[in-house]
């Protein structure tokens, strides 16, 4: 394992070192020590490497990730994994707001809770949260899956498109155009595979599915209150 000390070599050097890892690098295991809440740690990675951040991070850790697996052995700041394309991010603690914003692919796993706007404008990413999520989560979610083993806050899935939401606990309120949906066998199967991939032990049958009512898909003045 290669160790990078953020306090010693600085952010630019940490990220440049990780960016320099090519597709077929032999050095696949990295750790970053002393993150101390710094921003933009391990963002823009694009290689099949595994990076463990030993501590809590600031804004945009693992932003726009491709291929890499990033483990955050602490809590994660706002916008972690924003616009993730592929690969995996695992957060041992809690995640702040905007987790996985606009993510296009890959998976994000949160062992603790995720804050507000989790999965905002998600475009294909899969997010699995072991605890609860905050308000306005998956606002304008376009595609991908958001799995919540705990409770969801206010306005879940407001103005969503084709993203799917699976919640085991309570939903404080649903956002505009988001409705409860039937859990069909294919959804149970999908949910099981997501939970397995996330390494989280939970029974898919205990979850409820939510998604778009598709009433806002084409403008109608009688829906004006929802805009």
């Amino acid at each position: 394992m290669q160790t990078l000390d953020l306090q010693e070599i600085g952010l630019r050097e940490v990220n440049a070192t990780l960016h320099a890892q090519a597709e077929n690098t032999n050095q696949t295991a990295w750790e970053i020590v002393n993150p101390k809440g710094a921003h933009a740690i391990a963002c823009g990675l694009d290689a099949p490497i595994e990076v463990t951040v030993r501590g809590s991070t600031g804004y945009y850790c693992a932003g726009m990730n491709q291929q890499a697996t990033v483990n955050i052995a602490g809590s994660a700041g706002p916008g972690t994994g924003e616009n993730i394309m592929s690969g995996k991010i695992v957060i041992e603690g809690d995640a702040s707001q905007y987790l996985g914003a606009t993510g296009h692919g890959g998976m994000i796993v949160v062992k603790g809770n995720a804050s507000s706007r989790c999965g905002i404008s998600m475009k294909g990413v899969n997010i699995v949260v072991q605890g609860n999520i905050g308000h306005m989560s998956a606002f304008m979610g376009q595609s991908g899956n958001l799995v919540v083993c705990g409770d969801a806050g206010d306005a879940l899935g407001d103005s969503c498109y084709e993203a799917r939401f699976f919640v085991r606990g309570s939903v404080k309120s649903l956002g505009a155009d988001c409705v409860k949906k039937e859990m069909r066998p294919e959804h149970l199967e999908l949910l099981k595979s997501l939970l397995d991939e996330a390494g989280i032990d939970a029974d898919p049958s205990e979850f409820t599915r939510y998604g778009s009512a598709r009433n806002l898909y084409n403008f109608d003045v009688d829906n004006a209150g929802a805009y």
């Binding site: 945009y60 706002p78 916008g79 924003e82 905007y98 914003a101 606009t102 296009h104 706007r117 905002i120 404008s121 475009k123 294909g124 606002f139 304008m140 376009q142 595609s143 103005s159 498109y161 084709e162 806002l216 898909y217 084409n218 403008f219 805009y227």
Partner: peptide, 16 residues
């Protein structure tokens, strides 16, 4: 990443 033929609503603030 949108279904074909539906209205496209753009947000007024950045998401993150």
């Amino acid at each position: 990443n949108l279904p074909k033929g539906i209205d496209q609503r753009s947000a007024c603030r950045h998401p993150d």
